[in-house]
Deep mutational scan, measured.
Amino acid sequence: MTEYKLVVVGAGGVGKSALTIQLIQNHFVDEYDPTIEDSYRKQVVIDGETCLLDILDTAGQEEYSAMRDQYMRTGEGFLCVFAINNTKSFEDIHHYREQIKRVKDSEDVPMVLVGNKCDLPSRTVDTKQAQDLARSYGIPFIETSAKTRQGVDDAFYTLVREIRKHKEKMSKDGKKKKKKSKTKCVIM
C-alpha cells in the first residue's frame, strides 16, 4: 500500500485542523484551538488504489514558523489553505509557496490551493482571484467548507493525484537520464 505524506499549511484560523478532522473523523470542530502540530493517518481508496494518507496539520501562528522547514522537508505534497473571508490569509499563500519551493529546492512541488469556509456569506476573496492565482502557479484550486464537508475529500484526493503525477514524471525523467548515460565512448 502506497503511503502519501501530505502537509496542510496556511495562516492561523483558516480551518486547516477543521478540514483535516472532517476528512479523518467526519465531524466539524467549530471551536478554535490553535494547533502546534498534529499528525493523522487514514486509509482510503483513490482511483481504485488503496493508500495510506499521513497528514500533518501544522501551526499557522507566526511564533511556530521555525518548525516549518522541518515538516516541509518531509512532506510530499501540500494543501495551501486560505479562508475566503480573510484576504490576508490569501496573500500569505505566496509566502508559504515560496518557502516550500526553497526548502524542497524545487520549482515543481505537488500543491493544491484550497479556499476554505465557502459556506460563509462574508467572502472577501473572489473565486476568480483564487483561480487566477492557482493557474499562475500551475496547481489545482478547490473551494471547501469544513463545516458542510463540501470539497473536503476532493481537496485531499486531488493532492494525492498531483503527487502521483509528480512521481510518474520524475521516474520518466530518471529513465531518460539513465538511457543517456548508457551511451559509451570508444577510443581507438
Results as ranks from 00 to 15, higher is better:
residue 64 Y to V: 12
residue 43 Q to T: 09
residue 52 L to M: 14
residue 57 D to S: 10
residue 61 Q to K: 05
residue 23 L to T: 11
residue 40 Y to Q: 15
residue 30 D to R: 11
residue 51 C to M: 04
residue 62 E to F: 04
residue 26 N to T: 04
residue 23 L to H: 15
residue 25 Q to A: 06
residue 60 G to Q: 02
residue 63 E to C: 03
residue 46 I to A: 06
residue 30 D to F: 08
residue 33 D to A: 09
residue 50 T to H: 09
residue 16 K to F: 00
residue 46 I to Q: 01
residue 7 V to H: 06
residue 50 T to M: 04
residue 48 G to F: 01
residue 49 E to N: 05
residue 64 Y to C: 13
residue 9 V to N: 00
residue 29 V to W: 08
residue 46 I to R: 03
residue 17 S to C: 02
residue 35 T to P: 05
residue 11 A to T: 02
residue 19 L to V: 09
residue 17 S to G: 10
residue 64 Y to N: 15
residue 26 N to Q: 05
residue 28 F to E: 11
residue 24 I to E: 15
residue 25 Q to D: 03
residue 41 R to V: 04
residue 61 Q to I: 08
residue 21 I to E: 15
residue 64 Y to D: 15
residue 45 V to D: 09
residue 35 T to V: 06
residue 58 T to E: 10
residue 47 D to K: 02
residue 8 V to I: 11
residue 33 D to P: 10
residue 52 L to I: 14
residue 11 A to K: 01
residue 47 D to R: 02
residue 53 L to C: 04
residue 42 K to W: 02
residue 11 A to W: 02
residue 18 A to N: 05
residue 3 E to M: 03
residue 25 Q to M: 02
residue 28 F to M: 11
residue 27 H to T: 09
residue 50 T to W: 05
residue 28 F to Y: 09
residue 44 V to M: 06
residue 8 V to E: 00
residue 54 D to C: 04
residue 13 G to V: 04
residue 61 Q to G: 11
residue 57 D to M: 14
residue 48 G to M: 01
residue 23 L to K: 14
residue 10 G to D: 00
residue 46 I to W: 02
residue 21 I to N: 15
residue 59 A to E: 10
residue 12 G to H: 03
residue 50 T to C: 08
residue 4 Y to V: 04
residue 31 E to M: 03
residue 24 I to D: 15
residue 36 I to N: 15
residue 45 V to A: 12
residue 44 V to E: 12
residue 34 P to L: 06
residue 43 Q to Y: 04
residue 15 G to L: 00
residue 5 K to Q: 01
residue 36 I to P: 15
residue 45 V to Q: 01
residue 42 K to T: 08
residue 7 V to I: 03
residue 12 G to Y: 05
residue 29 V to S: 12
residue 8 V to Y: 01
residue 55 I to N: 07
residue 56 L to Y: 14
residue 36 I to A: 09
residue 7 V to S: 02
residue 63 E to S: 10
residue 51 C to F: 13
residue 54 D to F: 01
residue 2 T to S: 13
residue 58 T to Y: 06
residue 8 V to M: 01
residue 17 S to N: 13
residue 41 R to N: 09
residue 32 Y to V: 12
residue 40 Y to D: 11
residue 24 I to M: 14
residue 23 L to A: 15
residue 57 D to P: 03
residue 19 L to Y: 05
residue 20 T to R: 12
residue 61 Q to N: 08
residue 6 L to E: 00
residue 42 K to M: 06
residue 25 Q to L: 04
residue 15 G to K: 00
residue 12 G to F: 02
